[in-house]
Design a protein around this nucleic acid. Structure first.
Lengths: 111, 111
DNA sequence: GACACGTGTAAGAATTTACTGACACGTGAG
DNA sequence: CTCACGTGTCAGTAAATTCTTACACGTGTC
C-alpha cells in the first residue's frame, strides 16, 4: 500500500487516525503481529469499548484490518493486524492532493 | 528535516496538525513559495483569525515558518513558508517512537 | 444456573477543537 | 481625521472527539 493513490479525503482520514497517542500505540503494538481485542486492551491498559472505537477509526482509515475467528474452544475472537502501509509526506505531496480535499461545506459520506 | 529524529510527542503534534483540511490546504498553498497572512486568507476563503490559529498549529508542529518583514511602504507583513520536511510513515516507524508517546495521565506542557 | 471469557453497541458526560465577531495596535494616502 | 490595509488577541459559542458506564449476545466449565 503506497500513498500515491490516496485522495484528499482518504489522506485526511489517515492523518486524523494517526493524531492520537492511543491509536499510535495500538498501531505500534500491531506492527509485529496480530492480536485480539480483549488482550490488546489489557496490554495497553485501556477499556475494551475505548479500544474498540480506536480500532474502528484505524480500520476506517485502512491502517489496520480485523478478522473474526473461532478459537479452538469455540469462542469468537477478533484479531487485528496493521496494514503494511508506507506513507511519504512532503509539502509537495500535500499540494498534489489538495485539490481533492473536502470543502468546508461538505458533509460526511462515510455512512 | 527528516523524520527519524522526532519524539512521540512531536510526531503526534505533526499528525494532529495534518488532521485538518484547512491546514492541508494551507500547507499545499505554501509548498511552492511563501505568502503573507491576509492575502493567503483571501485566497483560501477563510477569516484571518481562523487562518492565524491554523498557522500557529502548523508552526508549533514545525511544518511552516513565519517571519515578520517590513514592506517598502512601511507596513508590517508576516510571510509564512512551508518547512521542507520529508516524513516516512510505516507501522514499524510508529512502533519505534511508541515508547516516547505521552501517557494518558500526562498534561500539556506547551505553556 | 452462575461464572469467566470472548464479542458488540448505545447513552451521556467530559474534554478538546474549530470558528465568529469584536477589539487592539501601526502605517500611508486622500 | 478618516479610510484602507497590515498585524495580533480575546471572549464566547458551536461542534466534534474522547471516554466511561452499562447493557446486549454467545460459548465452555464448575
Amino acid at each position: 500500500m503506497d500513498s500515491e493513490d490516496l485522495t484528499g479525503a482518504e489522506l485526511l482520514a489517515v492523518f486524523s487516525a494517526l493524531a492520537n497517542p492511543h491509536r499510535l500505540r495500538v498501531l505500534g503494538a500491531l506492527a509485529d503481529g496480530r492480536q485480539y481485542v480483549s488482550l490488546l486492551a489489557r496490554q495497553l491498559g485501556m477499556s475494551r469499548p475505548l479500544l474498540h472505537m480506536h480500532l474502528q477509526k484505524l480500520q476506517a482509515a485502512g491502517l489496520v484490518a480485523g478478522e473474526l475467528e473461532l478459537s479452538e474452544d469455540g469462542k469468537a475472537v477478533k484479531y487485528f493486524a496493521a496494514t503494511p502501509f508506507s506513507l511519504r509526506v512532503t509539502p509537495q505531496a500535500i499540494k498534489a492532493i489538495a485539490p481533492t480535499l473536502p470543502g468546508p461545506d461538505d458533509r460526511k459520506e462515510t455512512d
